[in-house]
């Protein structure tokens, strides 16, 4: 009798283990199905709204091709749709070299990039935007191998934008040789401005501060984050290591004044 019970206990134990294993596994299977559904709905939204510029494989070779835009100063900008398959993103809140966090991608999709004619999709349901975000991640292997870094926190000091800070910023602009690309008066016409190429070897133009808004928006916080994260894939480096936080804010004050947004 004892033996039988012993054997039974073993069986019961084995059975309960199996049940447990199933119990752990089955929700995961639900997740998989959910993920697949999300990717599928993301693909649908992508095909209707994004494909014509960003292309079927997300490589930026859509049917619409290159967009040409004549700037105020007569220069013609050639705008290439972002190559999502590279897995390199310009507009992040994470340090240079990192993948963007989910919110970064959502911000770009919902706010758009007016300077490059990326429309705003604010009116889309939030689930659709999330689905597209997940679908975009399937284009690059980076998303499988890496995790996004911690986003950089932005604390705008009270003195940002005041005349003293602007003056210090002007000095930093000079010392850091920003003018070599962005021009000594911020007009994007520095001596190196005509030979700049992005990672794919396409010509890019440094930002002309006198022509309006930055691509990601010109709030002081956005300018600060651009200096801190750099624009990966372009010639714009991150100044996280070469300038301290205070100096970066001085630079923000000066560049905002160049954009005539100083307070």
């Amino acid at each position: 009798m004892k033996k039988i019970i012993k054997g039974n206990i073993f069986i019961i134990f084995a059975l309960s283990l199996m049940v447990l294993a199933f119990a752990i596994e089955s929700p995961a299977r639900d997740d998989d199905a959910e993920y697949a559904a999300m990717i599928e709905s993301g693909r649908k939204v992508y095909e209707v709204r994004c494909l014509l510029c960003h292309g079927e494989n997300g490589d930026g070779n859509g049917l619409a091709g290159i967009i040409r835009r004549a700037e105020r100063n007569g220069r013609i900008l050639e705008i290439y749709p972002r190559d999502l398959a590279m897995g390199v993103f310009r507009f992040r809140t994470t340090p240079t070299g990192c993948l963007p966090v989910d919110q970064d991608i959502i911000d770009i999709i919902s706010n758009g990039v007016p300077r490059s004619f990326m429309p705003s999709y604010k009116h889309l349901p939030r689930e659709d935007i999330k689905a597209v975000r997940e679908y975009i991640k399937t284009f690059s292997f980076r998303w499988e191998e890496e995790e996004p870094c911690e986003p950089i926190s932005v604390n705008r000091p009270v003195w940002a934008g005041n005349p003293d800070s602007v003056r210090k910023g002007r000095k930093i602009y000079k010392e850091m040789k920003c003018g070599e690309c962005h021009g000594y008066t911020g007009k994007g016409d520095g001596p190196k401005s005509n030979d700049l190429k992005d990672d794919q070897g396409k010509q890019i133009l440094p930002f002309n501060f006198t022509t309006g808004n930055l691509k990601r928006g010109s709030s002081p916080e956005n300018v600060y984050i651009t200096f801190t994260t750099g624009l990966d894939g372009t010639g714009m480096p991150s100044y996280e290591d070469s300038l301290n936080e205070e100096d970066r804010w001085h630079l923000v004050s000066y560049t905002l004044q160049l954009m005539k947004k100083g307070e």
Binding site: I67, R68, R69, A70, R72, I76, F117, T211
Partner: peptide, 13 residues
């Protein structure tokens, strides 16, 4: 031969 969006005119030529 190519359309250009013109910032001054605010439209595509």
């Amino acid at each position: 031969e190519q359309t250009i969006y013109d910032e001054i005119f605010g439209r595509t030529i």
